[in-house]
């Protein structure tokens, strides 16, 4: 415990750069101090979330220009955020017909949104928030908890929590190509998958998995597969007999150094894991509701400037950290 705590303290001060997008009552509303850059051509009736008013931010994605997209579960909206000028602020938002979960940007200004109510993954145009087509059609995905896309290979990987599997779709026509895992025993199969990330350079799929909390042989883990679905390795959340590195793994990403960034929803921290050993290299954030603190963090993205954006569900914010420091 002692060693871990030291590591944590050492990295923390450098880590927190600024905290933005305050939307809860007690914090100043950063959004109001910026003139929203706003998407042009967005119909006002599509906007349901006023700037600074996210209700339940869940997943986050980023496009090539650096704009962020957040699925807001309770307000049934997709919120678009602009980062820059020392802050992050709501630029625009559009409503979706139900509660959105997974979200991902793909080339051609496409936004893939998993809808827990309609049980579909709907593809919208980021330019006007208009529905374009749906992956696999109605009923293809029971619980579209998270999405990752490889635009170069025209592939979309969708976590279906209900099927305990990752479903792979062709981005060009929305067809279901194949399925990775499915329920099964041991550390090879997905037990309770929650979130997903891709490592295109290695052609690998990384999946956060709660494991089966009722079965001692199924700890929480990050499971790595090839794009084709062959199991590569499993990084367990357990360490030693009683220790734990993470217990409720959610959103994850691979950074420029090939390290795995992972949020633990209960612990309120972002872990940086060594891809080979699974060792914890650094942590960012700590449990709480104040600036730089995380309370039910659910997802993250890291950009080319080593900035880390984390959806902070309970405080209804996006938290920003600078990696490395």
């Amino acid at each position: 415990m002692q060693a871990r705590f030291h590591k944590f303290v050492r990295f923390l001060p450098a880590a927190i750069v600024f905290v933005v997008l305050a939307s809860c009552e007690e914090l100043p509303d950063a959004a109001s101090t910026h003139e929203p850059r706003g998407l042009t051509g967005l119909r006002p009736d599509l906007v349901s979330v006023a700037p600074g008013e996210m209700q339940s931010p869940v997943r986050i994605a980023q496009d090539k220009q650096g704009r962020l997209y957040v699925s807001d579960y309770q307000s049934q909206s997709v919120v678009m955020l602009d980062a820059g000028g020392g802050g992050v602020f709501v630029a625009a938002a559009f409503t979706v017909p139900g509660n959105p979960l997974g979200i991902e940007w793909a080339k051609g200004n496409l936004l893939l949104v998993g809808n827990a109510t309609t049980r579909t993954v709907d593809v919208y145009r980021t330019t006007n928030g208009k529905w374009f087509y749906s992956l696999g059609g109605v009923g293809a995905i029971g619980d579209p908890s998270d999405i990752a896309a490889d635009s170069d290979r025209d592939l979309a990987f969708v976590v279906d929590g209900e099927a305990f599997a990752v479903k792979v779709f062709d981005l060009r026509n929305g067809a279901l190509l194949y399925t990775i895992s499915g329920p099964g025993p041991g550390s090879y199969y997905l037990q309770n998958p929650t979130a997903i990330a891709l490592d295109p350079s290695r052609g690998e799929v990384l999946v956060s998995d709660f494991g089966d909390p009722a079965v001692s042989g199924s700890p929480p883990s990050v499971k790595i597969y090839t794009y084709e679905g062959d199991h590569v390795k499993t990084l367990s959340g357990k360490s030693g007999m009683l220790g734990q590195k993470f217990s409720r793994p959610q959103g994850l990403a691979v950074d420029a150094l090939g390290r795995i960034l992972l949020v633990d929803a209960v612990a309120g921290e972002v872990l940086v894991l060594d891809r080979q050993t699974g060792n914890v290299l650094e942590t960012y954030g700590t449990l709480g509701s104040g600036p730089g603190e995380l309370w039910l963090p659910l997802d993250l993205v890291v950009d080319d400037n080593q900035m880390l954006y984390v959806t902070n569900n309970r405080p209804r914010r996006v938290e920003v950290f600078s990696l490395g420091g």
Binding site: V58, L101, R248, V266, L287, W295, R314
Partner: peptide, 15 residues
């Protein structure tokens, strides 16, 4: 806060 986070890690969105 960790109590609510614990419950919602399973009973919250994406749980």
């Amino acid at each position: 806060a960790s109590i609510e986070a614990t419950c919602l890690s399973c009973h919250g969105p994406a749980g």
